[in-house]
């Protein structure tokens, strides 16, 4: 168990490159040994030999999977991408309105990821629904239980959460090897990025999600962690948890070197004199492309460090 050593890494003590290296390796190890996700409260008796798989989901509910679920709908894009990356397209039988991945575009939609259409979920005869944990959508969890549709809660807030999702889903669908490979790739990519930007001065950046006054990514978000991994300093990492709305004055006051915005957004006019950049699409969904996302952000923050070729 690696929890004890690494839990306090909200702090800046450990070097990022070392951190990601350890995460990647340990995450992969966990998968192989069937050990549990990061917060240490969970344990699984599953081993590589397979089922039954026992897991505790992000809502704190214990699940036992006797066999691999065959008919799955994921309401959470992070989980959908993870399942697709582990070649589970065949077992996905529905999608949400927001899923644009070509593999599942032809599937029937169940509406939004929050408050999905329950009728359609029932009619799809599902073995498993992957849903958002937390408070955004209490009724759905309750109704799914009433309707006897198994549901597994995930909460893709930070990078660690995403790695947990990949590992858990790998166990659930019986593809621990694919999950381990994916985790290894992500860990390597993050570690590679961190090594490239190690020792460089950290530009002060903020990530704007839009809104007026704008919302920014604060602590606990994967964006904040990606910025740190890419050798930047998120000036709003004192805010949060997660996202917060801040005044334009506060944005000016924090002394920004670069403003990162979602695709298609422009920063408020009062910030027009500051350099800004659109985040690449790889950052949109916290999923298997986290490594790519870190690389893309690092290229924006430290163009010089990537001159010698593709990262």
């Amino acid at each position: 168990m690696w929890t004890g050593a690494l839990t306090p890494w909200g702090g800046r003590g450990m070097r990022w490159s070392a951190r990601w290296f350890v995460i990647g390796i340990l995450a992969a190890c966990d998968t192989f040994s069937g050990q549990q996700p990061p917060d240490g409260t969970e344990d699984t008796e599953a081993s590589r030999s397979g089922y039954p798989v026992q897991l505790t989901d992000a809502a704190g509910t214990r699940h036992t999977f006797e066999e691999a679920p065959r008919r799955i709908v994921s309401l959470v894009p992070s989980a959908t991408e993870a399942l697709l990356a582990m070649a589970e397209a065949d077992n996905l039988v529905g999608r949400t309105d927001y899923d644009r991945m070509p593999e599942i575009e032809g599937l029937p939609s169940v509406g939004g990821g929050l408050q999905p259409n329950l009728e359609i979920l029932v009619s799809l005869d599902l073995d498993l629904v992957i849903r958002f944990a937390g408070e955004s959508d209490l009724a759905t969890a309750e109704r799914l239980t009433d309707l006897a549709i198994p549901h597994f809660a995930v909460q893709p807030d930070g990078i660690e959460d995403v790695l947990t999702i990949i590992r858990d889903l790998g166990l659930i669908i019986g593809k621990e090897d694919a999950a381990a490979e994916l985790l290894g790739e992500i860990g390597n990519a993050l570690e590679g990025v961190s090594r490239r930007v190690a020792g460089l001065p950290e530009p002060r950046v903020a990530y704007l999600l839009g809104g007026d006054p704008p919302w920014v990514a604060g602590s606990g978000t994967y964006i904040d962690e990606l910025i740190s991994a890419a050798g930047g300093d998120n000036v709003f990492d004192d805010l949060g948890p997660l996202y917060a709305s801040v005044s334009v004055e506060a944005l000016l006051d924090r002394g920004l070197d670069l403003i990162l915005v979602s695709e298609g957004l422009t920063p408020p006019t009062a910030l027009g004199h500051l350099p800004s950049a659109e985040l690449p699409p790889s950052v949109e969904i916290p999923g298997p492309r986290l490594g790519q996302a870190a690389t893309d952000i690092a290229r924006l923050l430290h163009p010089g460090a990537f001159e010698d070729g593709p990262g």
Binding site: Q115, L138, A139, R143, A244, S245
Partner: peptide, 24 residues
């Protein structure tokens, strides 16, 4: 709402729009 996190805001907005969807 102004001092709450994004999740609370989202749930509150969904609730305030009114819906019969969760009727059991």
């Amino acid at each position: 709402l102004s001092i709450s996190d994004a999740r609370t805001v989202r749930s509150a907005v969904l609730w305030m729009m009114g819906s019969l969807a969760s009727s059991d």
